[in-house]
Amino acid sequence: MAPRGSGSNATGDAVAELADRDSFAAVVRREIAPLLATARRLADSEADAKDCVQEAFLRAYRSRHQFEGKSKISTWLHRIVVNVALERVRKKSQRPEESLDGLQPTFDSRDCRIEPRRPPPPEAHTLLERSETRAAVRDAIAHLPEQYRRVVIMRDIEGRTTAETAADLGLTENATKVRLHRARAALKRLLEPSMGVIRTEGDDR
């Protein structure tokens, strides 16, 4: 068996791997375990995770001709399963997207930060041991307005550069940076309750 995301993924080979049903079936077998692991982190149940993976592969199969081989197949499939999982979160909750305006940092007339005093947050891996925190992170990203969510996923989750993200979204690099910053600031605010906020006297200045 070829190693995962192998490199077979030189562009032509990767595209060929998706060319027909039989070669796609081999991709399903090779990639399904890590994709299911991703779906399990994002889904509410095992059944939900499996549904996500099934839908992701179906979408990938339908859109396989659009895969240009610019990324590894594993990365392309990962993006699809994340998008499927976040879509399902939005559909289930029926909550509207967050408005980011009220979630931005504030400053006083001397440009000093107005920020409640808080203890240092625990490490991310410690925080993510709690299922409530995992759900909070997932829900916060799922409910970002689409134009912000796409930037966060491309920059922070997929690790693409500002230039790549800007080109893909048809934005200037500066607009991409502004969107990323607003989204990150909003996520910080939304996730604060999951970081062990302890309110003490004097926090309300």
């Binding site: 375990a33 890590p34 808080r118 925080l127 922070d156 910080k188």
Partner: peptide, 27 residues
């Protein structure tokens, strides 16, 4: 403290949604 929490919010998203390079391929 603000930056510590800002950074942590980014890390939480990366760790939960990111591709796990070190995930066991032998599941």
């Amino acid at each position: 403290p603000y930056i510590a929490r800002y950074r942590r919010a980014i890390e939480l998203g990366q760790k939960l949604l990111g591709e796990q390079e070190d995930a066991p391929a032998t599941d």
